[in-house]
Amino acid sequence: MCLGIPGEIVEILPDQPDLAKVDVSGVRRAINIGLITDDEPRPGDWILIHVGFALSKIDEAEAKATLDFLEGVGQAYADEMEALRESGIE
């Protein structure tokens, strides 16, 4: 199962403006934010991430509720977090 996971943008990479450093439950990765064109992502924004791409911006309350739910799902969430830890966009 593939999940969309909330993450908080920590910084937009200055040399690659389509990439942002994003914190997902303590794991930081470069995520492609180029698909979000209607409302420019900024540090502090929450985004929904799937396979290394930000799909949409979400508010912090929705992000927290989604993370709580995903942690309750168990193994699917653990698998997705492991995949995130092992991934990397350069």
Rank of each mutant, 00 (worst) to 15 (best):
E8P: 01
G88H: 03
L3Y: 05
I9M: 00
A63G: 06
D79Y: 04
F69H: 12
Q16P: 01
L55R: 15
G72H: 10
I5W: 02
L48I: 14
A30S: 13
L70G: 11
V10M: 06
D18K: 11
A30F: 07
L48K: 12
L84E: 00
D15C: 04
I9A: 00
G4Y: 12
A78F: 05
P17N: 02
L3N: 05
A76L: 12
A83I: 09
L13P: 03
L48R: 09
E60A: 13
E86S: 12
A83C: 05
A30V: 05
D79M: 06
L84I: 00
A63Y: 05
E11A: 10
V10H: 05
D59V: 10
F69T: 14
L55Q: 15
S87V: 02
L55M: 14
R29S: 01
E60F: 03
A20S: 03
E82G: 03
K21A: 03
P14G: 00
E60P: 04
A20N: 02
A65F: 12
G72M: 11
F53K: 14
F69I: 13
E62S: 11
T66S: 14
A54Q: 11
M81T: 01
F53C: 12
F69C: 08
A54G: 12
E8L: 04
I89G: 04
S25T: 03
H50D: 13
G74C: 03
V27K: 03
R42Q: 14
R42G: 07
D68F: 07
E80R: 01
